[in-house]
């Protein structure tokens, strides 16, 4: 049982890590603690449903359409909601993302109906069995894709010119402006990336379960994940996501399925009290 739980913790944790990475990119760039990250994951799942089931696009094209729609959504959110609030109080910014998630949920339920939808993709189903360990292929695909995405974005930030400028913007807004960086464009890009990563996460979560607005709660696990990992740390978001996946699966299997929330948020509270800068963050830059 231990290995089985470890496996599902790893697979789900990888998806949470992906969504959390998107969250951290947005937070680092624009200092927005995005309570709508879960809603963005839901949007990704519904974009996929629209492209595959409703428009009937071939799978690769459908994925491209879903990625483009997610990116566009991120950009629109930044332009219409986040930019006008720059320099305003934390409550205003937190609340606007919460209100956004309420609106997104309501609009999706109006358009698609409150009941869930099945997402049918040509992704491999079936199970690998190694000894006692059952590894659903879908979980493996989700984990592998998540890690490829995380590595790709890691490389993007590290090695490309735009990645460099985005890091500079996140490091120090005003200095980046002074150095000639188009800060607004970089922030918009950060929102696009954040939304795309949430969308991919939503696609897999919807595939593993069923596509409904309830996925938002799962997507929102990115919040404790980033704080546990360290708000200012990109690797921290991934590690935090993995940890949250593990905590969720282990508490559900060894304590009770109802205990997952308290295990995750209890751990979050301990981190907040004793190491608020997170596991991988450093104390100096971790202050918010």
């Amino acid at each position: 049982m231990f290995a089985q739980v470890l496996f599902s913790g790893f697979a789900l944790g990888s998806i949470y890590g992906l969504v959390a990475l998107g969250f951290a990119v947005v937070f680092k760039a624009t200092q927005v603690f995005n309570f709508a990250q879960g809603a963005l994951a839901v949007c990704g799942a519904y974009f996929a449903v629209t492209a595959i089931s409703i428009l009937g696009l071939p799978f690769p094209l459908a994925i491209l359409a879903m990625l483009a729609a997610s990116a566009l959504l991120g950009v629109i959110i930044h332009m219409t909601l986040i930019q006008p609030l720059s320099g305003r109080s934390m409550l205003a910014i937190i609340m606007v993302t919460i209100a956004l998630s309420i609106v997104i949920r309501a609009v999706i339920e109006i358009i698609y109906g409150p009941q869930g939808r099945v997402l049918s993709t040509p992704l491999p189903t079936g199970v690998f069995i190694v000894g006692d360990l059952r590894m659903p292929k879908l979980h493996l695909t989700a984990a592998a894709t998540s890690w490829v995405c995380m590595a790709a974005f890691g490389a993007f930030f590290r090695f490309t010119r735009v990645g460099l400028l985005m890091r500079a913007t996140a490091d120090r807004h005003e200095a980046a402006m002074a150095a000639g960086v188009n800060v607004n464009l970089m922030n918009r890009l950060a929102w696009a990336i954040g939304s795309v990563l949430a969308g991919i996460g939503g696609l897999f979560l919807g595939q593993l379960q069923i596509v409904s607005t309830e996925l938002e709660t799962i997507g929102l696990l990115a919040l404790p994940a980033v704080v546990i990992g360290g708000l200012q740390s990109i690797p921290g978001a991934i590690v935090g996501g993995l940890l949250v996946g593990m905590i969720e699966q282990f508490s559900s299997s060894y304590i009770s399925p109802k205990s997952t929330d308290i295990a995750i948020y209890g751990f979050l509270l301990l981190i907040l009290l004793f190491r608020p800068w997170g596991l991988l963050g450093d104390q100096e830059t971790g202050r918010v």
Binding site: L164, A168, A175, A176, A179, V181
Partner: peptide
């Protein structure tokens, strides 16, 4: 106002 979490060369490359 340098980019304090980036290397010296990365700072220059931003410019």
């Amino acid at each position: 106002m340098v980019f304090s979490r980036m290397t010296v060369e990365e700072n220059l490359m931003v410019g």
